[in-house]
Design a protein around this nucleic acid. Sequence first.
DNA 1: CAATATGGTTGAGGTTGTCAAGTATTGACG
DNA 2: CGTCAATACTTGACAACCTCAACCATATTG
Lengths: 139, 139
Amino acid sequence: MASTDPAREAWSIAFELAMSNRSRLLMALGELDLTFMQAHVLRLLDTEQPTTMSDLAESLHCDASNITGIADRLEARALVERKSAPRDRRVKALVLTKSGLETRDRAREAMREPPDAIRGLSKADQRALRDILRRAIAG
Amino acid sequence: MASTDPAREAWSIAFELAMSNRSRLLMALGELDLTFMQAHVLRLLDTEQPTTMSDLAESLHCDASNITGIADRLEARALVERKSAPRDRRVKALVLTKSGLETRDRAREAMREPPDAIRGLSKADQRALRDILRRAIAG
DNA sequence: CAATATGGTTGAGGTTGTCAAGTATTGACG
DNA sequence: CGTCAATACTTGACAACCTCAACCATATTG
């Protein structure tokens, strides 16, 4: 309907796409034995520089104690290691292990897999969509 | 390579937008005292025809017992009522109460609110984005 | 009527999330 | 130097979400 502005309608559709993509994604992550949050945290970990627990808590807008639990489970599976910073031994950074890196990359691929509705667009539409979204995050 | 696949890159950006929108959305739903899943279920309820618990379980691709719990909490807050079907008394449909309807509409609005990155696009880009996404779900 | 299938609930157990309280370490001030 | 406050993380309690297995009530079928 013309009553809704285009940004609102566009996001509304994008949201529906993301929601119907949800189960497929959870399934794919399940095959890696990852919950959504575990995958999300892995995805945030960089190999270059360590990410502290409070960095993660801030990124995820959640309580620090929540990160403790998630890190516990990732560490128990040897996907991640806690490294105390030599400079300040209070702060602990999460570092990907070798298998953690591999798992992270596979999780990333699963998350980036577009739903069929997007795959079904013409190449021109796909490129136009990509360009508009690039502009959206550049702005 | 995969990174040059426009569909993949487009979805990747859309995913990031949705993720950074997440906390804002959870906050907005929190003001309605709704969790994400409660809002999601409310959103699926139609005023026209009743939705059975198994319909919901199928839509959400989750176990039926999960719906029982969510329905319990929604019903405890009088947002929803369980109505047994007269035709088959095993099946129970969730029906929105008056305040449930109101809450559902507010939740819908919160979920449809686009992130700033989309709002910041030019009107032409917003319309183009909407049109492409319309085609995506039409196809 | 007996056997079976179906829709929903219950209970156990795990993950995510918050809050309040606690520990360890750091930094600042007297 | 010693005390005190702030910081980074952990712990424990509790709630929501989620799955699985077992269960109850109702339908359906032979």
